[in-house]
Simulated assay, not measured.
Amino acid sequence: MRLLSAALALLLAPFAAQAADCLGLGPAGTPADLRMVRDGPSRPLYRGAEDAGCPAETAACRTGTTLGPRFRVVAGETSGPFTCVTRADARGRLTTGWLPTEALAPAPDVPLRAADWVGRWHNGPDRYLVVTATLDGALVLRGEARSGARTTRRTPRPTVHHGVLDARIETDGDDAAFTIGEDGATRPDVPEEAALCRVALRRRGPYLIVQDNGRCGEAGVSFTGPYRRTG
């Protein structure tokens, strides 16, 4: 059953949901689920509020990227008749933009096993997770995220912030949630511990959807986003 606890709905009191620019997924407790582009012609993605009058189904608002029918995407916040969607390809490279909500359909419901979580998952070049299974059937999640501009010949060495996850997780097949205590130990999700690292996971289609509360790394480094298995 795809049931998240009421605790997940209350995750992230410090982070109010915002339906502004389409920057990918919001923190845990905000919308994030698998959808599929409806059959028919490919659909263009549209820019967001950073451009005046967008999102809108106009040539000026198009990003230049299209999504073909039956592409599976992770749907996040809505803004009027549009939904912010993110797609990660087989290498974990991300595409994000606004899509008319009417262009999205429910994705097929496929039962999952614990083994479907196992593998190396990427979200862009700066976030990865590795999920392994123990002999007693538990799952162990380890990962790293970083933020900061990449160094080029023309830029000085940037400040790079890191986040690390190391947790033993339990799942009902589709969802999981946990808190990492100050001692580094994994515990069931605790809504009252807003200052600790809290993570919600959803396994949907080709994606491992991660949403955290911005407390899992330095300077607000986040693991939030859809991940694709790359190994």
Rank of each mutant, 00 (worst) to 15 (best):
E170S: 12
T155Q: 07
E192M: 12
L196W: 11
G205P: 12
V130N: 08
H161R: 02
L135H: 05
G119I: 03
R168P: 09
V210T: 10
S222Y: 02
G143I: 01
G163R: 00
V118N: 09
V130I: 08
L196M: 12
L165V: 14
R215D: 03
E182M: 06
D136T: 10
W121A: 04
E170T: 11
H161I: 00
R154W: 13
T132F: 02
A185S: 14
D172I: 02
F223E: 14
V130G: 05
T186I: 10
R142F: 01
L129F: 11
Y207V: 08
Y227P: 11
A219Y: 08
E182Q: 08
P158K: 00
D212N: 10
T155F: 03
T186M: 10
R153H: 10
T132L: 04
L141A: 12
R146T: 10
D183L: 06
G184E: 13
R228N: 14
D166T: 08
V164A: 12
D136S: 11
D172Q: 04
P226Q: 05
E144R: 10
V131C: 05
R168A: 14
G137A: 06
I180C: 06
W121V: 03
V164W: 07
L135W: 03
G181H: 03
D126Y: 02
D126F: 00
G148E: 00
C197W: 05
P191H: 07
F223G: 04
V221E: 14
E144K: 06
E170C: 02
A194L: 12
A195D: 15
E182S: 11
E192S: 15
A177H: 03
G148A: 06
G148H: 06
Y128Q: 11
T159W: 02
F178N: 03
E144S: 12
R168Y: 06
Y128V: 01
G173A: 05
R157M: 11
T132I: 03
A177F: 07
T186G: 15
R198G: 14
A194S: 15
R120P: 01
P188V: 13
A133P: 08
A167M: 05
R203E: 13
D174V: 04
G124M: 03
P158G: 12
R146E: 15
R187Q: 15
G143N: 10
G173Q: 04
Y207L: 07
R150N: 14
D174R: 01
T151W: 06
A133W: 01
G143F: 00
G124R: 00
V131F: 04
H161D: 07
E193D: 15
G181E: 13
E218V: 01
N123K: 00
F223A: 07
T179V: 09
G181T: 09
I169W: 04
R153L: 15
G214A: 10
S222A: 13
C216D: 13
D212S: 09
L129I: 05
T186V: 12
L141P: 05
A138T: 14
A177D: 13
A138V: 05
